[in-house]
Design a protein around this nucleic acid. Structure first.
Lengths: 312, 312
DNA sequence: GCGGCATTATGCCGGAAAAGCATCACGGCG
DNA sequence: CGCCGTGATGCTTTTCCGGCATAATGCCGC
């Protein structure tokens, strides 16, 4: 016995709406006998009469009326399924898992989310505050679509790709009243022996790798006096004078006016904020989010904007 | 371009679950090439790749995963639609509209509802307290499936059919202390001049038709002292001695011990409780309800039960 | 590196099923 | 009674689905 197909439902709905096989056949652009047979087959498959054929018009039976509701619902659902699937493929619907390094992405993330929501309002972005290793593992395992983090070493990538989103010069964060805050920049030797606060080594190993690289070849070692597990407490520690901290410029977003950031003078290589992804598994929505993150302009004044040329 | 059919969904779900065309084809009892082509056609129709074919196994794409959920839901819905429609045709699901005359059906209706609910728990019975004319019009117009009422005249039926459910002897209802309550029955002449209360003529014209018939040929006219629009207030009126009332025996169900019912002596033709229906439109559920009403036994003692033979 | 083993894709053919065409049967209406 | 309109039936045509044989592909083990 041939199974029920959507064609049967489409045909039946047409007949049930017009209550007339001939007109329904015309609407469906098939000949009337073909339609009659399909309806007959459907009734046979259900072993239930759905219509009472009269010479003047057809009439729905009780069962036919309930089947009509059902058939309409099924057809609509099928239609929506197709539309939804196409939208997912176009990256307009669905969900993406995004890992992010909180302090590094304070500038980019809000803008990217905002801009992405405008272009793809149907995509739900799930954010995960993760360490760099967790992100790399998550992207590698397919749990994450994107990881926003400091550029990792080539061997840590192991097949993944990345795209550079921003570069942030390495700065010294100082209390506003600090002596060194008066200049436009700070020479490395001025802080080489100063007490430093830092991110905790356990949670931010790559920060310490950066510090080590910074001090390599200078014959000094950083004088770490405290470790903190978040940017907020780090800022507070500097504010109350426990020490200085070496951070990428984007931390200015978080510190607001509480700290002054001054670029290090012989400028070391800047911190690169990148988006890591698996090119195999890059979905449409993830591509869209990447584009939003790449092109997101910072709307707040003065943070990463080039200083405007002085009015002459 | 051929449209999407349920077959495509069935095939896709099988492949998506096994992630293997060959095994899925075996489960579907088709050859693997046929399955491959159907999936290819489906993807072409959606213009969306749903599966990534690998030499080791297939993998769902993002769009494929969402389409899988949708396809499963649609197939299940279709399955349920078929089951539901069959159940409706068998009279096991659905809804019936039943009109009833409240005081005439106090015995039958509760039993019928109970018994019907046991045999067809999926059918919702909608009850409508209506006058006889309203019921006849409702059944004639298809708004009601059944009308439970006193047997109407043949010409009022106009094409409808009915089935007799019960017969109730015509009785006189008296206050328990009334002189006439002492006997087992009441002779007509004993009440022919007594003050009578009655149902209101406006709402119960057929009651007055019955009264008229009862008095026809006796040379008397009923001495009506009050009219009431419900059985409850009628009972109360008799209880406080405003008059007697002529009612079918089933009113004993409502009056409880408050009134005594005594059959009229030369017994007039009894009141027939019938179910009126349109044989053209009789649905399975309505047939079931009719059967329940017909065979419903009264579980309460002594109301319509034949008096048991005395122990000798 | 190459043969074996799985995978899916392709070409071709036969048959089932759906569509089309012509016609029939039936009921209402002028 | 003939003339619409209805849906049903018989037959043919077309489409398309399924089956078979076989190719192409990628992986694994030897």
């Amino acid at each position: 016995m041939p199974p029920v197909e959507l064609r049967h439902l489409r045909y039946f709905v047409a007949v049930a709406e017009l209550l007339n096989f001939t007109q329904a056949a015309r609407r469906l652009r098939v000949a009337q006998p073909a339609l009659s047979r399909q309806i007959r087959d459907l009734e046979a498959e259900l072993s239930v009469p759905l219509l009472e054929r009269g010479p003047r018009a057809a009439k729905l039976t009780e069962a036919g009326a309930t089947f009509l509701e059902e058939a309409r619902a099924i057809l609509q659902r099928a239609d929506e399924a197709v539309k939804l699937t196409r939208a997912v493929a176009r990256g307009e619907r669905g969900e993406i898992q995004v890992g992010y390094a909180p302090s590094l992405t304070t500038e980019v993330l809000p803008c990217a989310l905002h801009s992405f929501h405008n272009t793809a309002p149907g995509v739900h972005v799930k954010l995960h505050d993760l360490s760099s290793e967790e992100m790399l593992r998550g992207v590698g395992a397919g749990r994450l679509h994107l990881g926003l983090m400091a550029r990792p070493s080539e061997r840590a990538l192991s097949g993944l790709k990345f795209e550079r989103l921003r570069e942030y010069p390495i700065c010294v964060a100082l209390p506003p009243a600090h002596r060194l805050a008066r200049g436009r920049q700070v020479a490395f030797k001025q802080i080489a022996e100063a007490p430093l606060v830092a991110y905790s080594r356990a949670e931010y190993p790559e920060y310490h790798a950066m510090l080590t690289k910074l001090f390599a070849g200078t014959g000094r070692t950083p004088r770490l006096v405290e470790e903190h597990d978040s940017a907020a407490s780090l800022i507070a520690a500097v504010e109350i004078g426990r020490g200085l901290v070496i951070v990428p410029a984007c931390l200015g977003m978080l510190a607001g006016g509480r700290l002054k950031l001054r670029p290090l003078h012989p400028p070391p290589p800047p911190i690169q904020l990148v988006a890591v992804f698996d090119p195999q598994r890059l979905t449409g929505a993830a591509v869209g989010f990447l584009a939003a993150a790449r092109s997101a302009e910072d709307h707040r004044p003065g943070s990463n904007a080039r200083p405007r040329s002085r009015s002459r």
